[in-house]
């Protein structure tokens, strides 16, 4: 059971990086590739149908952390306290930007929330690099090398976001990319998480919740697993191609 739950946890975290990676990547590319409001609108509309299905992977990561590694959950989050707070605020601002940008008229309004999306995406990407570095080395939450790793994660996400734009809005960002390219750039975005997961596997397995808890959880999740996977696949089938329907985000 411990191994199975570790696999679930690993897939969720790596999956979060691969999926939300392109949302955040497109977000932090807004000031770079979206010089005009119309271009920013198209960039946001490209990721919009995927965001809700992607960011929820992190919600599930945190829930699995509490359920499967309750002994570690507090320790990990508490050791990174200021970083976790900054990452949460970044995430909140990014989401608020997406939900609010089209809710009132005026270029100023939309530009303001686009800034929130870009800043929030950058903060979250940098935060992930710093957090992974701190967890891997046991250093404090804020470390010069950690900041470098954060910059690397932000670059990896930007590359992934750029590839995503090349795949969904062919030619928009100067490139046209295939589904295979997107898969590869997803792997690049997920690499930092995968590396840390490989290193931490033994430690995590040792600190799993008792098997009674894991079995109970497993029995309750299994019936829903096909629906969960099916819903995610449905999102990709439904929104593969972009069109002229006005975006809600």
């Amino acid at each position: 059971m411990e191994t199975l739950w570790f696999a679930v946890f690993a897939v969720l975290l790596a999956g979060y990086f691969a999926l939300e990676g392109f949302d955040l990547g497109v977000g932090l590319l807004l000031p770079v590739l979206g010089r005009t409001q119309e271009r920013r609108d198209r960039m946001v509309a490209a990721v919009a149908p995927f965001v809700l299905a992607n960011e929820v992977w992190l919600v599930a990561v945190a829930g699995t952390l509490i359920g499967v590694y309750p002994a570690l959950e507090g320790e990990i989050l508490f050791s990174l306290y200021p970083l976790v707070v900054a990452m949460l605020v970044s995430w909140v601002l990014r989401d608020a930007g997406l939900w609010f940008r089209r809710r009132a008229d005026g270029d100023g309004w939309r530009a303001l929330w686009d800034l929130a999306i870009a800043g929030g995406s950058l903060g979250l990407a940098m935060g992930w690099g710093m957090a992974l570095y701190a967890l891997a080395t046991g250093s404090g939450p804020i470390h010069p090398i950690g900041i470098l790793v954060g910059a690397f994660v932000a670059l990896a996400f930007a590359f992934h976001g750029w590839t995503f734009l090349g795949w969904r809005l062919k030619g928009f960002a100067g490139v046209t990319r295939s589904g295979r390219d997107l898969l590869l750039s997803g792997l690049v975005a997920a690499a930092p998480a995968i590396i840390v997961l490989v290193g931490a596997a033994g430690y995590l397995l040792e600190h799993s919740a008792p098997s009674a808890t894991l079995t109970t959880l497993g029995l309750m999740v299994v019936p829903f697993a096909p629906v969960i996977v099916g819903a995610q696949v449905w999102v990709w089938r439904a929104f593969r191609t972009s069109d002229r329907i006005p975006s809600f985000f």
């Binding site: 919600v59 599930a60 945190a62 829930g63 699995t64 509490i66 359920g67 499967v68 309750p70 002994a71 959950e73 507090g74 919740a209 008792p210 808890t213 109970t216 959880l217 309750m220 999740v221 829903f224 969960i228």
Partner: peptide, 14 residues
């Protein structure tokens, strides 16, 4: 956490 974590995990994961 072994107890309280389970419903939270169900809420988020499912």
């Amino acid at each position: 956490g072994d107890v309280f974590g389970a419903p939270l995990a169900m809420e988020t994961l499912v």
